[in-house]
Computed example of a mutant assay.
Amino acid sequence: MDIFAEIKGIRYKPLLCRRLNVFSFDNMDIALQKEASFILKIDEKEIAVSWWVSPKRTRSYPYARVYDTLEFPGKKVTIIPIMKDEGKDGDRDFLQWDTVSLMSLLGVYVIISYYVDASKNPNFKNKITNQKFDVDHVKEEISKLLYYQSDALHWNLLQLDNVGEIGKRALEHYKNISRRLGVEMHSWESAEKRIMKILKDKKDFMKLSRQLAEKAQKRERVTIQPKEHLTGIKATLTIKNYLGGLYYFTCDEAEIHGDNLYLIEGKHTKGKELPSLEDIKDGLLKMILLTNLENVQIEKRNYNPIPILKLTTAKGFDIAHLKKYEIINLLKEEARANSFKLLINDKFID
């Protein structure tokens, strides 16, 4: 099933954001070590900050980190590494345009940065861990952002102008880390080609990332992860924004019921309890997109979208015990406030 839709603006009221701790600008390095999301105080100004462990969306719940900043009334920024290389025995990921685009849709300012330090992973010959950002670079960008008057989209487009230079810095620091720790990294040649591709210009970077996103979308469409507990049809979801840009996502489940189209984001746990709060917040970030869709079509026929957050558990879960979960009341309130449905196993929760 291939679904096409538009988003002309975002309206959403988050209710599950955790209380964020406040750090001074001078203690930003400490904040990055201790907190996934936090408030940064600079003189009399404040800004909500989250950061991604990897540029890949499926690692370390970056959506949950961003979600926790959405209640903050001021500027919200997220720090994303241009690339992350864990060494030859680990993974290597690169930033994609679509990630920046999603943040732009949400009104979140992106700082594209890079890692400058790491430790050797004691369990692998060629793997590193505990990677650290260039804090001076991040602080420099945040200082610029404090007085930036345009919206997140325009800031993020400017950030993309610098991806080539940022990529070069990332590669140089990984080479230094490799020499210092005696760890073999992934192919420099292929990384340099990727960076050079980005360096050419923003349009090429966007084109490359969109091609990769389309391929990932198609792969995900035909692959059901073992952790998912789904019964409907997996679908592609292509969203066009008000500037005509296209964003490629997948929908865990899609079901047609007359003129209604159920768009289901699923989160599963193997235990008898509900999925983790991070998993739920990850799903809620998708709800922000799904609740703001307009002109939803399949094969040029219009449908009324019904966004659904589906939480599934192992057998033995007693839905009668939901009153024990304080989070459920907030989750139900968030669903009502933003017009999506909450489904736990096979029962809608009102």
Rank of each mutant, 00 (worst) to 15 (best):
T236G: 03
N329I: 04
D85K: 07
A235S: 15
S209H: 01
M1V: 05
T69R: 02
D161Y: 05
T250I: 06
S119D: 13
E189K: 06
R179K: 11
I327D: 07
Y12M: 06
L311Y: 04
I3G: 11
M103G: 02
K125P: 09
I111C: 07
D68F: 00
N292K: 11
V49K: 03
E278D: 09
Y247N: 05
I128C: 08
D2C: 02
A335Q: 13
L243H: 12
K45H: 13
L153M: 13
K300M: 10
K310T: 02
S150Q: 12
K323M: 11
F317Y: 12
A36L: 00
N338D: 07
E253L: 00
F317R: 05
K270H: 03
G316E: 15
H173S: 13
A235Y: 12
E294S: 14
Y67W: 10
S119N: 10
K203Y: 08
V22C: 14
T78I: 03
D68C: 00
D161P: 00
D318C: 04
F133Q: 07
L246H: 06
L20I: 07
L95Y: 08
Q33Y: 15
G74S: 15
N292F: 09
E255A: 04
K120N: 08
K127C: 09
L343I: 07
I349Y: 10
N241M: 06
L208V: 06
H173R: 10
L311N: 05
D134I: 10
V138L: 14
C17F: 00
Y63G: 01
L145E: 14
D85Y: 09
M1S: 11
C17Q: 01
K240M: 15
A36C: 03
S60I: 01
D259E: 08
